[in-house]
Amino acid sequence: MSSMFFGHYLLENGVIGREALLDAIEMQRRTNRSLPDIAVREGLLDQTKAEQIHAVFRVSNSSHEDLCISEGKLAANDVERLTRIQSAEWLRIGCALVKGGHLAETELATHLRTFNAIEATEQKTLDGDFNHLEESTIVRAITELTLRHVARMTGVPVKLQRIDPSDGALNHGFRRFAQKIVGDREFFVTVDLGDPLFSIAAKGMLGVEVDPAGDAARDAGCELINLIGGNACTRLEPEGFHLRPEPPFCPEPLQSTEPNGSSIRGRMAAGEDHFEINIFINPP
């Protein structure tokens, strides 16, 4: 789990502008293909079956690779060959920037070296964040599930930037979805989505375009955090926690949900947008 995408690093350090990053991301979207799509191109799957796998992917916890096999669509050796093709063809963000004329190859090599070094250091910090938290098991489990579900519903990769103990102060410009977890601990989990991600997540949940201001999108956000909360409780049961989620809700913007004090904030990046997860834990 690393802290930042290379494209964000270049943007934040003034190496490229926002337009260049968007152009490169768009080039990636046009070029990079999912495994089922490559299977269609290689004549191993028909379009209908590929769409079925995409539909299942949106709501399951499995990878495209596993689904192609478990849904009986492809043999394991075909999936292995397709994965190699996908990997060879995959256009990484740095190469897309070079291809688009936004970055010289020599610059790419230099910045990539620096970026990798920073990433290695930050990874250690992130591990430290988890391990030194009193409730690190809960935070880690919920963070993992949040990453997984949000990535699946938005269709874009997400990374954790850091986890900070914070005073519960909240950012502007987010749609908040919250769930109270009760049992032998009591805490709130909230997910804060920026507007673009909010729309994408709603579409990912419902499979159709929805009005971001409407009830359907709000409902999808609540169901998103419900999936995270419920699965988190299930995931934590074998570790000795007896927890259950209460119904999810959508608090008013900027209204803190925690009654007193302790909160843990995770900042995450997802493509060009970002969102936050706040896990509020009261002292037991």
Binding site: N226, L227, I228, G229, G230, N231, C233, T234, E237, H242, L243, R244, P245
Partner: peptide
């Protein structure tokens, strides 16, 4: 049908 799948539930 639930996202919660604990033994208790």
């Amino acid at each position: 049908v639930s996202s919660l799948g604990t033994e208790d539930a």
